[in-house]
Amino acid sequence: MLKHESKSIGDILSEYFEENTFLRTKIAEHRAVAAWRELLGSGVSKYTKNVYLKRNTLYVQLSSSVLRAELQMNKESLIEKLNEAAGMPIVYDIILR
């Protein structure tokens, strides 16, 4: 019996995700949405009603206008942090409602 080059499961999965860009993008989108609550903590989470990503824009519904104004001023920094958490540039804009 010939022994072929064996690979670990992690290597096989990495190769699969590199080839399948649709799946990799969907996973990055999920990470970006989940990172909103992780990055901003429980204080902001209390005022966050809904978070979703559509066409590379993160939509966030907030119940506090003061918090909305504060986050609006830090939008560029938030986009960078969310993309870093997602592992790829997936968020290009944030709409705070």
Rank of each mutant, 00 (worst) to 15 (best):
Y16W: 15
L40E: 07
H30A: 12
V44E: 08
Q72D: 07
R37S: 15
R68L: 10
S77L: 08
N56E: 13
A86D: 06
K7C: 02
S65I: 11
L96V: 09
R55D: 13
V33R: 03
V66F: 05
T48I: 04
L67N: 01
Y92V: 06
K75N: 06
Q61C: 10
E19R: 03
S42L: 09
I95K: 11
R68N: 08
M73W: 11
G10I: 11
R24V: 11
E80T: 12
A28S: 11
A28Y: 01
A86R: 05
Q61W: 03
L13K: 10
S8E: 05
K26I: 02
Y59S: 04
G10A: 14
K75S: 08
S63E: 10
F22L: 14
L23I: 14
T57D: 00
M1F: 04
V51P: 03
L53A: 07
L58M: 07
A69L: 07
E70S: 14
N56Q: 15
E19M: 02
K54E: 15
L2P: 00
L67K: 02
V60T: 03
V33H: 01
K26N: 02
Y52T: 10
N83H: 01
L78F: 08
T48A: 03
K54H: 14
I90G: 03
G10Q: 04
R24Q: 14
A34Y: 00
I27F: 15
D93E: 14
A35W: 00
V66S: 12
E76L: 06
R55L: 08
L78I: 10
L53R: 00
V51L: 02
N20C: 13
P89S: 11
V33F: 01
L40V: 05
L71E: 06
A85E: 12
E5P: 05
E5V: 14
G87A: 13
L82V: 04
I94Y: 00
S8Q: 09
T21D: 11
A32Q: 00
R31Q: 08
R37C: 09
K7F: 14
R24C: 05
R31T: 08
Y16D: 11
K75F: 05
N20E: 13
K54C: 10
Q61A: 14
S45Y: 01
S6P: 00
K81L: 10
I79G: 05
E70H: 13
R37M: 07
T48Q: 07
A69H: 12
R37F: 08
T21W: 11
S77A: 09
S63N: 04
T21Q: 06
K49N: 11
M1T: 06
G10S: 07
L40T: 10
L96K: 05
A28F: 10
L67F: 01
V44I: 15
L58N: 03
M1D: 11
L62K: 03
L53Q: 01
A34F: 02
R37P: 13
K81T: 07
L71N: 02
I95M: 07
E80D: 13
S8R: 10
